[in-house]
Design a binder for these strands. Structure first.
Lengths: 125, 125
DNA sequence: TTATTAAACGCAACAATGTTGCGTTATTTT
DNA sequence: AAAATAACGCAACATTGTTGCGTTTAATAA
């Protein structure tokens, strides 16, 4: 079995994401980390963190991909999680208290949910 | 005010999307249309069709963007629409009968909903 | 039917995003 | 401290999306 290591880049990137109010894109993380590590390393660290279930990958309506920690002590939060993407300030936030409900046909196996609302956030309204 | 024209490329691309069982990506449309038109034209046609509300832009969980018509005579279907993205066959389909419900804080202005479920579709289960 | 107008087009060039291979570095384990 | 290999940097590439500009063509008026 593969072991995963704690490196400087991984720690720094995770730190950034967990302490950020909004979800961050690869480009944003690259700017924030400066020359801490290579562009490719950021991609690989993000993949690793997603696989380890430490962060979430969020696909916004416009097609951009962002990452957030979303780990606010909800046991089954992964299936009940809504993200909000602001058209104006481009911020992506987690709406922790908004729980989507849906009933589904039996013959589907659900492994993940991406529920993203687009519009204007309180700051931009 | 700007008028929008009916061109060969636009008609062909719309035809493809509306008659497709699954949502199509730009790359798929390009393959299907062959040398009908330029790659850039496809982007521009897709943008136009989205602006005209004839097709929907869907951001899948893995970050790829797909397009579907989704126009099955629901008056307010745009806000009550769930897409399913199959991990195995990569197909993206519309679950017309699945209606998501959610209650939201007041101070948000919702303009669009992207609700995509990931997993295995009936064909791949 | 023909002339006009500008939306839409092709092409080229570019920017952004994501991926892969490989030799090197550094974390973890022995 | 030494060995094993996960993770890294770098370079090169693939894919995806954008922009400018001169040309074509669909819609409208003459």
């Amino acid at each position: 079995m593969k072991t995963t290591r704690n490196t400087i880049a991984k720690a720094a990137i995770l730190e950034l994401i967990t302490h950020s109010e909004v979800a961050l894109s690869h480009a944003e993380i690259q700017k924030l980390t400066g020359d801490l590590c290579d562009r490719v390393t950021i991609y690989r660290v993000l993949d690793r963190l997603v696989n380890e279930d430490v962060i979430h990958k969020i696909a916004t309506t416009d097609g951009t991909v962002k990452y957030a920690s979303c780990s606010h002590s909800h046991e089954n939060h992964s299936h009940n999680h809504v993200h909000f993407s602001c058209e104006k300030c481009k911020s992506v936030t987690c709406l922790e208290n908004v729980v989507p409900m849906f009933k589904l046909p039996d013959n589907y196996l659900i492994k993940g949910v991406n529920f993203t609302l687009t519009g204007l956030c309180p700051n931009c309204i």
